[in-house]
Design a protein around this nucleic acid. Structure first.
Lengths: 192, 192
DNA sequence: CTCTGAAACTATAGTCATTATGGATTCATA
DNA sequence: TATGAATCCATAATGACTATAGTTTCAGAG
């Protein structure tokens, strides 16, 4: 990676860090993009060049990883395990379903959950994984990616964190929803 | 209804009409709130007093009706009909699932679908019906409204228009999704 | 009918996110 | 080393939205 890309990544990182620090201290609405740009020592124009989606996007990275990561969980699951079982286990170790996180990440998660604008943007990134996930599910179940039930299943799985995350026992809630989906999407669907 | 409320409703209507007309002609981003306020012959401050949720909310009414209407479809269904069957029939006659609409409403729908900001706001209003719908489902199926599966079902049903609406045959797509949900939420759940 | 308080309206000025412009600097590479 | 692209900057503009303070209009009490 050349110096150019390195500097670019550095600037992006500086912006993320500055934004997260200031948001944590003053709240999302208590911080202006000008302050963030100052803190990161770049101009406002540069800030927006790095974050075309706007202020909310500052503390997120693409989210492309998440898609890859979900699709991989489906594709690389142990032999004999159902697609939904793989997704269930995959989600169980992430997001709202574990408190086994470094305090830094926990604080970030709380900030997002407590800020409507951030929550919405986070959802948008997350739901963008519907297409890739649907492709992975289709490939593993011998269906077409355009199959409505495949797309619906992908979407429904992606909704689970938002639905279960606010419950008293998120993990139990998640399992209840997966049970519901598994009844409607039985193993038999997965025969090629 | 006194003159006061009547005038208020008139102003709100004038704003809606002006916004819809201008959006249709110049596109959502091609119109400023100042133009809309002018067209409706009110000040900008007044515009925002009527529409606290901002520009996107101009062409929508509360959406409170929609919730009532959905919950009613569940509550007042014919004896022996399942909750999901009632919802299936109810949705089939609305939104993206019928072209049997006055051209005025069709144009409005196309505007919303073709404008990200409007689409998102429309979704927000629609999803706000999750709570009421969950209550209705819970009441009819002898479960608690806090039951995770009830809330999930409500949410999943509300997602259907967005999921199926973009398919070539929306009605067929909707039916496919309802079949999926009915398998996971069998009749047996509805015994009190 | 008249008085009064609240609601609705207005003009004005401000804040803030976001975009546009045009120029300066830095880096990759031929 | 020269060239072109990427990055950055200062500046100014646009447009959504909010705050303030004052005016008009209506509903209801007396």
């Amino acid at each position: 990676m050349g110096r150019r890309e390195r500097k670019k990544a550095q600037t992006r990182r500086a912006l993320s860090d500055a934004a997260l620090r200031l948001f944590a201290e003053h709240g999302y609405d208590g911080v202006t993009v000008a302050q963030i740009a100052d803190e990161a020592d770049v101009s406002i124009a540069t800030l927006f060049a790095h974050v075309p989606d706007g202020k909310e996007a500052l503390i997120f990275d693409d989210g492309a990883e998440r898609h890859v990561w979900l699709a991989a969980a489906v594709r690389d699951r142990p032999a004999g395990q159902s697609v939904l079982e793989a997704l269930r286990r995959c989600l169980a170790g992430r997001g709202p379903f574990t408190d086994d996180l470094p305090p830094e990440l926990r604080a970030k998660r709380d900030l997002i959950v407590g800020t409507p604008a951030l929550r919405e943007y986070s959802r948008k990134l997350w739901i963008a994984g519907e297409g890739p996930l649907a492709e992975a599910i289709a490939a593993e179940s011998g269906r077409e990616p355009s199959d409505m039930t495949v797309r619906a299943l992908a979407r429904y799985v992606l909704e689970i964190p938002e639905l279960a995350g606010v419950e008293a026992d998120p993990l139990a809630a998640m399992n209840a929803i997966f049970d519901l989906l598994e009844a409607g999407w039985p193993q038999s669907h997965e025969e090629a």
